[in-house]
Write a protein that binds this DNA or RNA. Sequence first.
DNA 1: CCTCGTCCTTTACGACTGTCAAGAAAACCT
DNA 2: AGGTTTTCTTGACAGTCGTAAAGGACGAGG
Lengths: 216, 216
Amino acid sequence: MAVPPAPAAVDPMAAAAARVSRHDNRRDQLAESALVTLGNLGYAKSSLREIAQRSPFTHGVVHYYFSNKEELITYCVRYYKATCVTRYDEIVTTSSTAEELQSGFAAKLAETIREEGPMHQLWYDLRNQSMFEPALREVVLEIDGQLQAMIWRVITKYADLAGREPALDPATTYGLLDGLFAQTLLAWATGPEGDRESVLDVLTARVDTLMPTLLR
Amino acid sequence: MAVPPAPAAVDPMAAAAARVSRHDNRRDQLAESALVTLGNLGYAKSSLREIAQRSPFTHGVVHYYFSNKEELITYCVRYYKATCVTRYDEIVTTSSTAEELQSGFAAKLAETIREEGPMHQLWYDLRNQSMFEPALREVVLEIDGQLQAMIWRVITKYADLAGREPALDPATTYGLLDGLFAQTLLAWATGPEGDRESVLDVLTARVDTLMPTLLR
DNA sequence: CCTCGTCCTTTACGACTGTCAAGAAAACCT
DNA sequence: AGGTTTTCTTGACAGTCGTAAAGGACGAGG
């Protein structure tokens, strides 16, 4: 791999900063590659060698930038979460009616499965593995809380627009919607290729009927 | 391992049947041991050697009774399911009021986490792995359908007793309740030991508030 | 009693795992 | 230009994995 040459820096402090930045960039590149592999193979079957082989790097580089497998995984998960826990915020801020928010949210749920299915598979895999592997618990707990907060932002805005109140607490609301989402993801991932779109349609329909009952 | 001697059989056909039965018994014993290990370690970390070591058998025996790891796993899952997809049927048949069914069902949900937590962890693990491992899909799909049917029996009886109708289709209803159940199991499995009972209390409370909204 | 089929233990094989280190290559700085 | 530091390749290590086979133990049937 050719490393882009750092700009000639006269200032040694700036040079050090550039070095650190280049180092972090590599970590991000590794994480991005690793996430693709993790999403496709799952946590268990993603060895460091397999991850490296499906990236522009060798397996030695992985160990150069991450001291453990655990460090790589948790770094990947946090990297992934940074781009995804605000997924519905645009819909929340731009919707001006309850119906618009409801249908936009339902559509977005389906869209993110279609566009980022493997990433969601990975998330559920890791969340489950955290029941067996204590090392994963901290990062899983953190992200799960952020996902719950994200859903709660949707629901409070939805309630606002509808002039009503959320009927349930944040955790319960998240649990219900997450159940439907996971169920759909499973059908999407394991079902025949031709059924994928209809599976997503079913999800939006279910969310559409569920949403009003989440308010009182 | 000492094998219990087969009763002296004069009839060669009866002898053959006894042999087959002994063979099946061994498979069940193996499966029972394996399930404990699978539930404690998860699918990924349960090697055949680990399974054998936590059983009264050697790893050679495992391979003698099951030709593959896959065959062992799927046999285990089916063996487990046989004892669990009727878990709520007694409550369904004995309850005479909607309230009784509702609270009995909610309590049973919590109880089965308390009593059989690792088994449920294993189930969610396998269901998730089926997204990455096509070999698991058939058995997962089969059991998921049976679980859904089990939930639907509860809901239809509940609707009957309440003199109302189920508000949602079986799949949606199952998805919602399963979401709450999985959420609770995660908290139960990964949270501090001292919080386990309160986590279960929260589940029963949530199910109690949810149940009426599942009817119309 | 002796053989045969079943059941089980033990050992082995090749592949794969995470981790590490030696050293080449490249980039950097003076 | 030359020495230093960072980056990367390669090969090796000690384990573990699933799978298989060779052989012993042992009751069943002749």
